[in-house]
Nucleic acid binder design. Sequence first.
DNA 1: AGCACGCCGACT
DNA 2: GTCGGCGTGCTC
Length: 742
Amino acid sequence: MYAQVAIKGPYGGLFSYTIPDALREAAIPGALALVPMGRGNRTGLIWSLADTCDYTGEIKPLADILGDTPPLNAELMRLLDYIARYYRQAPASIAAAALPAHLLHDRKRRVIWLGETAPPDSLSPALRALADHLRKRKNGLMESTIAQHVGRAGLDRKLKLLRDDGLIRIEESWDARHKARENPHWEAEEQAEVRQLHEPPQLTDEQQEAVDALNEAITAGRFAPFLLQGVTGSGKTEVYFRAVETALAQGRQALLLVPEISLTPQLTARYRVRFHETLAVFHSGLTPARRHDEWRRARSGQARVIIGARSALFAPFADLGLIVVDEEHDGSYKQEEGVPYHARDMAIVRASFNQAVVVLGSATPAMESLHNAQHGKYHHLRLTQRATGADLPPIELVDLSDPQNREGMRAHSLIGKTLREAMSETLAAGKQSLLFLNRRGFAPALLCNLCGHSVSCPNCAVALTLHKGRNQLMCHYCDHVADPPDVCPECGQLGLIRFGPGTERLEEEVKQRFPDANVARLDRDAVKGSADRLAKTLDAFRSGAVDILVGTQMIAKGHHFSGLSLVGVIAAESAMSQPDFRAAERAFQLVTQVAGRAGRERGQTGRVLVQTFDPQHYALTAAACHDADLFADQELRFRAEAEYPPFSRMALVRFSCEDLGEGDRFVAELRRNLPHTEGALVLGPAPAPLSKLRGRHRWQLMIKGADIRMVHQAVGRILAAAEPLAGRNLRIGVDIDPQAFV
DNA sequence: AGCACGCCGACT
DNA sequence: GTCGGCGTGCTC
Ligand SMILES: [Zn+2]
Ligand SMILES: [Zn+2]
């Protein structure tokens, strides 16, 4: 019997080890193992057990099993294996995404000074300096601490010399913090007020129908996927609550996935009021130790309901009966950084492995989900009425290219005449306005008005972002920071002008036009560094203390403002700034979502103005009449004609290399040896749109196939052709079902 | 990817 | 001679 162990490494694959008798009980899939690797030991995750192994070299035995219970159970291991195969990712990177960061860590070394006396005079100056540092602590120093004091450079070599001279002893350890803490942190408790008596609201007929359908499926205890399509304000959350209660009543557990941006204290407080001490919260803001506490609470079964963002997909459960994916269309469920898995798609898979019910909720479902619903793969539940009975607000498209509307607009002005007039009427009536601006396309920058150059990052092919407060240029992709230059780096002239962030410019313009109004701004910069700033600004707007709120994505989701009567979208096409095949879908989702902030209460007439240069665009006209079906018809027709997903499947294979010439030569060589796959279309390899990232030049190759099997097959063949051609400096990455094409 | 080894040029 | 940058080989 061999243990196949996932270890972070080059082949990304699995390494086989024999299992010593002493470890036979403990060495099961999902357990953490200490294994001999090369000259030393590494930690890894036992992926599977096998009777045979095809490695022909010497096979070593497992050194140890870490912790007393395996962190991952069989159910999670099955999911991890599926993800590794589906997304063509190294098992070790999936393991790293699924385990608390604590558990898979690197070797730690403690250095202990042995000599009673002073170091011998024969030591060279560099060794002497190190020895003097080590001599001060009798019980030793951690290597990382030493590195902080005397520098990383050459430390390994120096320590080796001191050890060879018998002056120090080096102890290695891989012990993770497997033990639970004495006083584990409890995120849900931290955030919620006293337990309140909760009176569940009356359901509308539509809600009741949806709840009935879900309850029936949950009670049946079989895999059943649902698409819950409900207009903004239709009360999807209450439907989720009821479904969760049903799952709990069946003795099963529930997982709620929400977009990272929605996972606010206000949201978790709502769930806490309903589910009390059975709730655990997973979010990226938790420290590793706190995250580990929540994770353990879930694994022990103490938590029955878990709410979290993308990575909560891997939360451990004993008996998972329900998964809810809220805002299932949201792009944050698939990320390119790290492991490119789609949490919504894998939630479906996990539900099927658990005979669980899965609910995808959205006002504006992804075309993939709608297509599945239309073909009977998902049960389609619809909520067409707002829970409050309020009408959806009328949406007007305002043509920004219309000279009449441009009247009174200055060069960089963002507000056209129509919106301006609507704002002043709203203000005169004592009502509130909300202006939405997409962060993308309005980033603050340092531009040369003589040559048009914008100061860009030396490591990445992007313009640097100007941070006003710190007066520094920063890169969004890498950690590059620079002082703003005085002269243009391109033409050498004094032509540089500061172009503030869109929201700040918008705020200034609003203040200029409406000097008597109370204006507030909410964007990433405005809330940075103060946790309650977001809540405070939202409260001020809710209470009516603020007349006009200006903001980005942050204000588009979920919030409920009763005094709000005007919503303005500054530039609808900003959602289409990335020109990929999902651009129209994003624009429709954006306008629908922002419009949903207006007129949520009965008897209130909200108004939504959407500024655009293309008022004829079908995504905007459909959004303007709140017709998701009309949009879906047109968008699915376009996708079908162009053979885009959901009518085909795609993959990207990315290549990157620090050296441009080496990358170019590799790509040229690959082009000559590009294998063909029947039924799959291959485009490229060509330079990626984002041609340089963190000092690495980038290329990509796009694969389109009729189904996922074709795509997998083509990816397999291309990797088989590319890997032998790639030197150690060239990195290859695979992205199945890509969301972004940069 | 780590990690260790060893070549070589810079420095003193 | 010492120091450290950097290319190279190996890993069940
Ligand atoms: Zn210039
Ligand atoms: Zn950069």
